[in-house]
């Protein structure tokens, strides 16, 4: 059965590409495996909580620190697992994954769902459901500061869908409708500012996205230089869920989505895949990526992270554990 599904996936991916007008988009190919970690509580393992009349939980999020380390929010075990690049070690004795376990950082709670790492090593943690707050943790001094996310633009913590670190501070995506700046660039509380959609990464401006008609998705964005632009993302399968939409290097635009095809009974999926498309400023597709890893019953808050260089990292759950995969930039 697995072989059959893979065959369908290859065929579907081909159809996706042939449907693109103009120059052939570049296929970003197979991802590099950054990390494999098994489920558990030991060193290098990541915690999973199987639901029993409740939601199943896995690591909620991950990030890449300024020094290149991988931070995985292992909130089930009440900690952050830090992995470092293997570097030369990888050349001398090639391993499957590019990162190896380094250390744990314990965090004050088990309900955090998002993590960011600052240039000074401080951790920014989001607990949207219980504390309904952002917590800044200094892993050296163990000092913490907590800021409620509730206020203008955020009536309830459960609507916060993403933490967006930008040059001018930290923004929270609320309900995929608007974003609210809650911290300044030094992670201090600031006067709130609300913009529709979400702020761009590379310049002043905003980006809005929503599922559209005919199984497509609408993306509208407006920067400082040009007037508003829009894209209609249409694939050979319906776009069931948008995972991330962001601008990247050179003003390129990345749309990552979860597409699937319903089985005839309308109650199960006959095929599903995570796909990404890089668009240039003219709306042309430059490059594509695809991943067979989709979300599972094990809940996670962040699936995809786009790094500064435009590479895309996916956190995937398997029965054996957690895998972090990386595709190069466009």
């Amino acid at each position: 059965m697995r072989v059959v599904v893979s065959g369908v996936a290859v065929l579907t991916a081909a159809l996706c590409l042939t449907g693109v007008a103009g120059a052939q988009p570049r296929d970003l190919g197979k991802p590099v495996v950054l990390l494999t970690a098994s489920w558990g509580q030991g060193p290098g393992q990541l915690g999973r909580k199987d639901g029993s009349e409740g939601s199943s939980l896995g690591p909620m999020s991950f990030t890449v620190a300024p020094d290149g380390s991988l931070y995985v929010l292992d909130q089930v075990n009440g900690r952050v697992a830090v992995f470092r690049p293997r570097g030369l070690e990888n050349k001398e004795a090639p391993q499957e994954a590019a990162y190896t376990f380094d250390r744990f950082i314990s965090v004050p709670g088990t309900t955090f769902e998002e993590i960011e790492v600052g240039a000074d090593g401080r951790l920014l943690l989001l607990d949207r459901l219980v504390r309904e707050a952002l917590v800044v943790l200094d892993p050296v001094t163990r000092d913490t500061e907590e800021l409620s996310v509730l206020g203008a633009g955020i009536p309830e913590g459960g609507g916060v869908m993403a933490v967006l670190v930008r040059k001018d501070g930290v923004w929270l995506d609320y309900g995929r409708e608007h974003s609210v700046r809650v911290l300044d660039s030094s992670w201090n509380p600031c006067e709130r500012k609300i913009v529709p959609g979400r702020p761009l990464r590379g310049e002043d401006g905003t980006l809005e996205a929503s599922l559209g008609v005919r199984g497509g998705a609408d993306v509208r964005y407006e920067g400082t230089g040009d007037g508003p632009r829009s894209l209609f993302v249409l694939d050979d399968m319906p776009v069931g869920r948008l995972i991330d939409v962001t601008d990247g290097p050179g003003g390129l635009l990345l749309v990552v989505y979860h597409c699937w095809r319903w089985a005839e009974d309308g109650d199960s999926l006959s095929f599903q895949e995570v796909r990404g498309r890089w668009y240039d400023k003219n709306g042309q597709i430059l490059a594509t990526l695809s991943s067979p890893h989709t979300i599972t019953p094990i809940e996670q808050f962040r699936e995809i992270r786009v790094l500064q260089d435009g590479s895309v990292v996916q956190m995937a759950f398997t029965p054996e554990g957690v895998r972090l995969l990386q595709w190069g930039g466009p």
Binding site: G51, G54, T110, R128, L129, V130, S268, L269, T294, I295
Partner: peptide, 17 residues
């Protein structure tokens, strides 16, 4: 949602499979 969370109202992803 679970022991650590209690009863919540939130926006979340669903694995329709």
């Amino acid at each position: 949602k679970g022991c650590n969370y209690g009863i919540v109202h939130n926006s979340r992803s669903i694995d329709w499979g």
